[in-house]
Amino acid sequence: MHLAYPAVLSALLFCTGLYGVLARRNAILVLMSVELMLNAVNLNLVAFDVWLSRAAEETLHSGQALTLFTIAIAAAEIGIGLAIVLAVHRNRGTSDIDRLRDTAEGHEPDGPDTDTPATGTAAEKAEATA
């Protein structure tokens, strides 16, 4: 098999995942795009490991071992990422990453995202003083 086939497919999948990460607004769709990018890297690792295991005399099968490690780390990443997304959704009521701009510089502080906690603290203080 020509080595260009898996390499080109891996590059195309990686760029598809890149588009998804940059263009999606929901955080879970961004996580799915990250999974696509990781799978593109896995395909590259497997293809080059199969090529090098025939071309070289001694091989450690490092490509396939790294692929297994990448799959395990991706599983851990999706678990932690979904836990974080669910916690953010529980606290904010949204999982759109365009609205989570509290630490962003250079945007006006009187957006719709910041006045709701302010009124919450105002009501909190009123309740505390009363």
Binding site: A23, R24, R25, L29, D96
Partner: peptide
């Protein structure tokens, strides 16, 4: 609202 507003920039970068 699945796509954000910068999808054309994202498409340019990806292509």
């Amino acid at each position: 609202d699945a796509d954000s507003g910068n999808r054309w920039a994202a498409l340019t970068v990806a292509v």
